[in-house]
Simulated scan of single mutants.
Amino acid sequence: MTPGPDDPPPRRIIHVDMDAFFASVEQRDNPELRGKPVAVGGSSQRGVVAAASYEARVFGVRSAMPSVTAARLCPDLIFVRHRFEVYRAVSQQIREIFADYTPLIEPLSLDEAYLDVTDHLPEGVTATAIAKQIRARIRQATGLTASAGVSYNKFLAKLASDQNKPDGLCVITPERGPEFVLGLPVGKFHGIGPATAAKMQAMGIHTGADLRAQTLDFLTRRFGKAGRYYWNISRGVDHRRVSNERVRKSVGAENTFAADLMTLDQADEALVPLAAKVWTSVGRHDLHGRTVTLKVKFSDFRQITRARSLSHPVASEGELLSIARELARGVLPDPRGARLLGITLSGFDAPDSGPEQLDLFP
């Protein structure tokens, strides 16, 4: 692909994605789980799969799947409770490896990140060679495998990292990029979620080739501002930069309960670990938020939020918990019972240093 006069020069971008990260950590730390179908998450009626090993994925088990569905698909499935502090520690090990190669690191979650190595390649060393080194060092340091994609933009690098999983490497050159996307289903494109993919398919847009056949005017009329992005990626074009200056807008934690909470006392107790989780994160990143939001999902799956904004930043974990409890008193108890509670702190006075997953899985 030859850049146009207004196009930035091609970058050398690596997307690293750990293989079945949470489940692989559990298999690493417990030899009895190796080679067996494992799901990280609760096994109760309300449980959700946070991650599945590749042995479990053979049976159709996937993350975000209800645990009862996963157990039905794979009767021998072994459920393991999550250990997020362990996953975060391993993630930090991996990011320290990334930092040896470039300061331009954009984490997407605990287990994947973009690296722009364009301006940090030693003479005679390719981005592909760097990706191989990173994967080898991750294995040596953590005992885990990672897959990597190398390309000239973020969209294609992420697509590439999915091609040879697990423990794989794929390179999409500027010459290959525009044609690479043609045969792929639109549902495989990063940035096109299930709902948008279904909308496209209803219009007869099933593959990258179908998407490229649409005019820019058609796509912007049907998909708004995202239409230009879809038009570009169908041609292998993505001008987004790898950024390590992402600003956190909120920090939250939530939990789904095995049994509905029917009393205010139960809710008060359930809010304690959520407030602690949020406060730990904002303290780690030196954030100062003014708005506390409570989320409640009832047993009929209806969901409400209540928020309170202060004139000053929340000063302590105790104040955060107190405000959340006051908000809860405005909506609970409820005869439907609460199946989920969540606390979010937002309205920060300072930018954050990076994204972090805080969801609590049942």
Rank of each mutant, 00 (worst) to 15 (best):
E96P: 03
T344R: 14
L184M: 13
A276Y: 03
F98N: 00
M65Y: 11
R290I: 01
H15F: 12
V61C: 13
V272A: 12
W231H: 15
G289T: 01
A99G: 13
L310E: 12
V117N: 00
P185S: 06
A275P: 03
L341K: 03
P178I: 00
Q27S: 05
V125T: 13
A129C: 05
S316Q: 09
V86T: 13
I130G: 02
G35W: 06
I233C: 00
D111Q: 10
L216I: 11
R212D: 02
R137Q: 15
F180A: 12
V49M: 08
Q214N: 10
E319R: 09
R308M: 11
S151C: 09
L159D: 03
P10H: 12
P333I: 06
R137F: 02
V38Y: 04
G347M: 04
R248M: 12
F361G: 11
I192G: 01
H288C: 09
G42T: 00
T293Q: 09
S67A: 15
V278C: 04
Q92H: 14
L184N: 04
G47A: 07
P362R: 07
L156C: 09
L340I: 09
T142H: 04
E245A: 15
V242Q: 08
V314E: 06
G4V: 10
L345P: 00
G283Q: 13
A253H: 05
N255E: 15
M65H: 05
L294V: 06
Q201N: 15
L159I: 07
A51R: 01
D111C: 11
L261P: 00
E319S: 06
D7S: 15
G330D: 15
L271D: 00
L216T: 08
F98S: 04
P194G: 10
R308I: 08
V40G: 07
D286W: 08
Q163K: 15
S91Q: 09
L332Y: 03
S44K: 07
E96W: 02
K225I: 10
L294R: 03
G4R: 10
N153V: 06
F218V: 11
R246V: 08
Q133D: 15
Q163H: 14
R46I: 03
V242C: 05
S234P: 09
F298T: 02
S250Q: 14
R95K: 14
D238S: 09
R88W: 02
L33S: 08
N153C: 13
L274Q: 01
A275V: 04
D334W: 03
D6P: 11
D17I: 06
T145C: 08
R46P: 02
A113I: 07
S109G: 12
M200F: 10
Q92F: 12
K158D: 01
